[in-house]
Write a protein that binds this DNA or RNA. Structure first.
Length: 449
RNA sequence: GCCGCUAUCGUCUAGGGGACUAGGACGCCGCCCUCUCACGGCGGUAACCCGGGUUCGAAUCCCGGUAGCGGUACCA
């Protein structure tokens, strides 16, 4: 089995493209196949080296490697010209100067479902000659047979007047030469497939098998774009998602893996992936579910690896202790710093939280009591020591735990949300914890009414 | 307009004529756990697009409608 991923470098790798790449990779890795990477850059205006690098970078980040390539369609002009000559010589293609207006006029005359047929001329663009009789059947692995009657298909332009070839021709020649056995791509190519099949036939070659994947839509049911949500792999990465989770999630979009389990590694996905089982209907990208999966993958990483990734993501060091007490509370890498940053950068400033906890009821008094308890807490001031000290305050005062702990939390973190209070205080250390509480106490004496 | 594709909870899906009182996951709601937020556990909410057939029996098969999407470039 030889499969290919053939993006056109007209922008960042979109999540739909990422899924196409992933499915091809899964196919190759799951069954000892070969994955060929080809850059379809025949659109000279929109293809840039920066875009190519961006796509390669996204692929690597996702953990999708390839066996051959990247090759560039633009570098195969010689071979394309040769194949074009072959079709011209055999009468399967002809020169024509017919314009879009000519095509329109033809349809006005013959009916708007009648495919355009041109007259052979001595120069001009090159059109493929589509037979009037019969039909071309696309035997799609996912969709079954789709029939296209030849009389409905226009003679497609396959090369410009300057000899440069167009997509539907180049793609067929390239797939043929690369020995591709399975073409797996988005459903937007389904209507183009009969034209490509006709090129194979004209060349006297055996076409590959095709599988057209359902498209991915945004939350509003419309085509996914930059307007709604993170649509590119780079954006997902910047938003703190793990490649493991993105792979897992996009694999799930459109593939019926299993009805009772949805948490998979790349390897497991490769083992389970079945092209025939891919769904036929378009799917909506749901960031909520990605977040959920990301949280699971995050915890699956283990503390060492998670720390490594968080240090890379935040560009900070010495995060291990903070990661340890925050791991179960975050779903993305981006969630970490807002939750645990106070451990390094000092308490956040949240006056509302301060008012709500420390200024309210006997918050100041309880905070003072906690301060004394922590000052007297046993060495080594580890989590159990801190817990014993603070629970001692709860017991002595007969207060509800939250009434004691929340003021301490606000004093050291600045906010009402943080990792466990005992863990946080122990990690800060006695000196720093007392310093922050003292500072909160003096602040309270000034602002609490 | 024309040529195609698709149609199960809000979302992703399971379902291949009787096992469907339609299963799972995310979300949402409630409860438990609990120092906040999470994690985890338990329970709940919620769907077969519509209309005709075929059949003893249809979410499943066929036809039509409707809707969504794609293609319709000398783009890919």
């Amino acid at each position: 089995m030889r499969v290919r991923f053939a993006p056109s470098p007209t922008g960042a790798l979109h999540i739909g493209g990422a899924r196409t790449a992933l499915y091809n990779w899964l196919l190759a890795r799951g069954g000892g196949g070969t994955l060929v990477l080809r850059i379809e850059d025949t659109d000279r205006e929109r293809s840039t080296p920066e875009n190519v690098e961006q796509i390669l970078d996204a692929l690597r980040w996702l953990g999708l490697d390839w066996d051959e390539g990247p090759s560039f369609q633009s570098e195969r002009a010689g071979r394309h010209a040769e194949a074009l000559e072959q079709l011209l010589a055999s009468g399967h293609a002809y020169h024509s100067n017919a314009t879009a207006e000519d095509v329109k006029a033809y349809k006005q005359l013959h009916g708007d479902n009648r495919g355009f047929r041109g007259q052979a001329e001595s120069d001009g663009a090159v059109r493929l000659r589509v037979p009037d009789q019969g039909e071309t059947v696309v035997a799609d692995v996912i969709r079954g047979e789709t029939r296209f009657r030849h009389e409905h298909i226009d003679d497609p332009v396959i090369a410009r007047a300057d000899g440069s070839v167009l997509y539907n021709f180049a793609v067929a020649v390239d797939d043929l030469d690369a020995g591709i056995t399975h073409v797996v791509r988005g459903e937007d190519h389904l209507s183009n497939t009969p034209k490509q099949l006709l090129v194979f036939e004209a060349l006297g070659a055996q076409p590959p098998l095709y599988a057209h994947l359902p498209l991915l839509h945004g939350p509003d049911g419309r085509k996914l774009s930059k307007r709604h949500g993170a649509a590119s792999v780079q954006e997902l990465r910047a938003a703190g998602y793990l490649p493991e989770a993105v792979d897992n999630y996009i694999a799930l979009l459109g593939a019926g893996f299993s009805s009772d389990e949805e948490f998979f590694s790349l390897g497991e996905l490769a083992q389970r992936f079945r092209l025939e089982r891919v769904s036929k209907n378009p799917a909506v990208f749901d960031e909520q579910k990605l977040r959920h999966l990301n949280g699971r993958h995050l915890r699956e990483l283990g503390l060492d690896e998670l720390t490594r990734r968080l240090e890379q993501f935040t560009r900070r060091e010495g995060l291990r202790g903070a990661v340890e007490i925050s791991a179960e509370k975050i779903q993305t890498l981006a969630d970490f710093w807002p939750l645990a940053g106070f451990l390094f950068d000092g308490p956040a400033e949240d006056e509302a939280a301060f008012q709500r906890t420390i200024c309210k009821d006997d918050g100041i008094e309880l905070l003072g009591a906690s301060r004394e308890a922590l000052a007297a807490a046993a060495e080594p001031f580890s989590v159990p020591d801190v817990e014993a000290a603070l629970r001692g305050v709860v017991d002595a005062r007969g207060a509800k735990p939250g009434k004691v702990f929340q003021p301490v939390r606000v004093a050291i973190a600045g906010t009402t949300v943080s990792p466990g209070i005992f863990e946080s205080v122990a990690l800060l250390g006695r000196l720093e914890a007392l310093r922050r509480i003292d500072s909160a106490l003096s602040h309270a004496s000034q602002i609490c009414a």
